[in-house]
Computed example of a mutant assay.
Amino acid sequence: MPAPTISFEFFPPKSLDASFQLWDTIKSLQHLDPSFVSVTYGAGGTTRQLTHEAVETIRGRTGIEVAAHLTCVDASREETLEIAERYAAAGVSKIVALRGDPPAGADGFRAREDGFANSAELVEALAETGKFEIAVGAYPDPHPEAGYDGADVDWLKRKIDAGATSAITQFFFEAETFFRFRDRCAKAGIDAQILPGILPIQSWNGVKKFAARCGARIPSALERGFETAERDGRSDLLALTHCTTLCTRLLDEGVEHLHFYTLNRPDMTREVVHALGLVPPAVLENVA
Rank of each mutant, 00 (worst) to 15 (best):
I26N: 08
E85N: 14
D17V: 14
T51E: 02
E65I: 08
I26A: 15
L70D: 08
I58F: 13
T57A: 14
V123H: 09
C72Y: 01
A111H: 03
F11H: 01
S119I: 10
T57C: 07
E56I: 01
N118H: 11
A54M: 08
R77M: 01
F36E: 05
S28Y: 05
A106R: 15
S119C: 11
A75E: 07
D74S: 10
D24C: 03
S119K: 06
T46Q: 13
V55A: 06
A84P: 02
A120M: 08
E56V: 09
R77D: 00
R48M: 06
S7N: 08
K14L: 12
A89I: 05
S7E: 07
N118T: 02
A117H: 10
D24A: 08
R99N: 05
A106N: 14
R112G: 07
I64T: 03
E79R: 01
V55M: 09
V73H: 01
D33K: 06
D74Y: 01
L98D: 07
L70S: 14
A90W: 07
D114Q: 04
F10W: 11
T57F: 06
Q30G: 04
A84F: 06
V92A: 12
A89Y: 07
D24Y: 10
D114S: 10
A104E: 12
E78R: 12
I26T: 12
A117T: 10
R59W: 04
A106H: 14
N118C: 09
E56M: 04
V123I: 07
L81A: 03
V123P: 03
L98A: 12
N118V: 03
P12G: 03
L16N: 09
P13Y: 13
I83W: 15
I6T: 13
T71S: 15
D24T: 10
Q49H: 11
R48P: 01
D24R: 15
E113A: 12
D107S: 15
E82W: 08
R59C: 03
G108N: 13
L98Y: 09
T71P: 07
F20N: 07
G105P: 08
G105M: 14
D114K: 01
H52R: 13
I64S: 05
F116P: 00
H52G: 07
A120Y: 10
T57M: 11
E79G: 01
D107T: 14
D33Q: 09
A75C: 13
G105N: 12
T62E: 11
E53A: 15
T40Q: 10
S76F: 07
P13G: 09
V66Q: 00
F11E: 02
A89M: 08
G108L: 08
F116D: 00
R77W: 00
F20T: 13
Y87E: 02
S35V: 06
T47M: 15
H31W: 05
G63Q: 07
Y87F: 15
E82M: 03
D74R: 14
D107M: 11
F36Y: 13
R110C: 05
A104K: 15
L126R: 00
P103T: 10
I64W: 05
V96A: 02
E79P: 00
H31K: 09
R110H: 13
E56A: 06
T40M: 04
I64K: 05
Q30F: 11
L29G: 04
D33G: 02
